[in-house]
Design a protein around this nucleic acid. Structure first.
Lengths: 316, 316
DNA sequence: TTGTACGCGTTATCAA
DNA sequence: TTGATAACGCGTACAA
């Protein structure tokens, strides 16, 4: 099963490799006759251009790297799905890497992608450091930070305004008359956590008592934490829907009526938020991926901001 | 920012490209001195081998293609996550494509992967046709079907015994005294659907009345179907956990006590099954991915079978 | 409109 | 132990 090459096609068509090359690239300068004849032979032989040779020659890889923070979180799966759709339309190959919630792995994976060879990288970063992103960007890669905002970082971004999202949640709970609230958040070193927490407290106006938990980003941890709480607050604001689902489970086991006795708000609006009737802050993934590709294609640049929308369902 | 090549390193080290090549490949035949000297220069210059050139030269791409049926379903996200882990250990690059529940797209994506160039493909197929898999396999690619069994297909498989899984569910419900059950299944043309349905009916022993719905694989559709049902059965057996979550939502809105008045069993055991207390048939994704890599590395071959385990939680 | 020659970065082969 | 040369498959520059 030897691979069919340009040379084989040329030989078969009794012409030069160059002419065949022109045909497969739709370049001008080939007569209709020759073009058709060659086309036929290409189909006959089942010729497929070798992309590695092309990349080697052209310097462009036609590959797009995607680094996600946690592929098991449906938010990122959704993001990948949307990216794939657009990438496919543009004939790009998508290389996905799960950084598994580890900053160290994020750096490693980024290096690996550079070695593998990609034209650009979309990163949903851990959100603490950004030096590695800048470095990659400086070394000639187009880098887009997806979701996370680094005000002092010099990289492209399609970011979500965490502060504003938090504010909306806080404001809503205050208006609902909530006075005692618990925040089930991620690591406080991250920009995301700080934004959501501070935004919330601003919107909540210190109207009452608030307690902040900074936990590992894992629904099970959230579950166990709430399960063990001595006294429950009147509401929970969760770092994302995954954490929220853990909280919901704990509340269910404690036989608390969610949306009535205790309110819960998540963040992201993944599919199971709707399916489990969870109020949450919607991140417009699809639009954001669209913007990402506009950056990749050079139509836009800089830092593009999106604001989450508060989606009210049964839980709050 | 020109790329540093082997030639640059060789020039700098005042030696030949070949020697440098030997160093970066840990090949024998280089003196300790030269090796160390070259190593140092490699670090100094920040040299990274160009994988495209390597692939071109060696014929091996170091790339693994993964085709999943629906990346938004956490089952597949989990599968990808596990594959990534093992691929990383082996220095493989993973190229993921979501076939978006479309057989047509599955075929297209497979072709695309062949053009992109991969050494092997793991495909979680739609599960109706398998000709395209055989074709790809015959053209020199290592193809592994993940999850789906094609008894008459001549391709490697790491498959899950749907029939046995269904049987376990049916048997359990029968023993619970259920007599009226509804099956919320996928397209009946698929091997998976047939296996789960027939297995269930066998285990259920036609002990009572059963009604089969063949729906589009979408939690929303499942939700709407159950929402509209005139009379409810005593139990639901769902094609997967995604469908089950739709059923659960409908039941909740109908104010039915799940696990008490109506039982529900899913399939897959994704993370939200545990979080929402859903009984289900667990597919050992991690083990299966391990087996997949044993096939890829040539340590195993043929068709490797796994049996789902019935995980009982509150819903049944 | 068509063809020739060279180079992209690497490795296999063979010779020194 | 080291190096020269060719080749992997393709595209660009230039010539015909």
């Amino acid at each position: 099963m030897k691979r069919v090459t340009l040379r084989d096609v040329a030989r078969m068509a009794d012409t030069s490799m160059m002419t065949v090359s022109r045909v497969i690239n739709d370049s001008p300068g080939v007569s209709k006759d020759t073009r058709e004849r060659i086309m036929q032979i290409i189909v006959e032989l089942g010729y497929k251009p070798n992309k590695d040779a092309r990349s080697l020659r052209s310097g462009k890889t036609g590959r797009l790297g995607v680094l996600v923070f946690d592929i098991r979180n449906p938010f990122y799966a959704e993001m990948i799905g949307e990216i794939e759709d657009l990438a496919n339309d543009r004939g790009l190959t998508v290389i996905v890497t799960d950084t598994n919630r580890s900053h160290q792995k994020e750096e490693k994976a980024l290096n690996l992608l550079e070695e593998t060879g990609v034209d650009s990288v979309v990163v949903a970063p851990e959100g603490y450091e950004f030096k590695h992103l800048e470095r990659a960007s400086n070394s000639g890669l187009t880098v887009v930070s997806f979701g996370v905002h680094f005000p002092r970082g010099d990289i492209y971004e399609v970011w979500i305004d965490d502060h504003e999202g938090g504010r909306k949640a806080g404001e809503h709970l205050r208006k609902q008359g909530v006075t005692k609230v618990a925040l089930v958040m991620d690591n406080p070193r991250k920009a995301t956590t700080v934004g959501r927490t501070e935004g919330f407290l601003e919107g909540f106006c210190s109207a009452g008592e608030s307690q902040v938990f900074n936990l590992q980003l894992d629904w099970r941890v959230a579950y166990e934490t709430v399960k063990k709480m001595q006294t429950l607050p009147e509401a929970f604001f969760c770092h994302n829907d995954m954490m929220a689902i853990g909280v919901l489970r704990a509340l269910r086991e404690r036989r608390v009526k969610v949306g009535d006795e205790v309110l819960v708000i998540g963040f992201d609006d993944v599919f199971f938020a709707e399916a489990t009737n969870l109020s949450t802050l919607r991140i417009p993934v699809r639009d954001m991926v669209g913007a990402t590709f506009e950056i990749l294609s050079g139509k836009k640049s800089g830092k593009i901001r999106y604001v989450p929308e508060l989606i009210l369902r049964g839980s709050a």
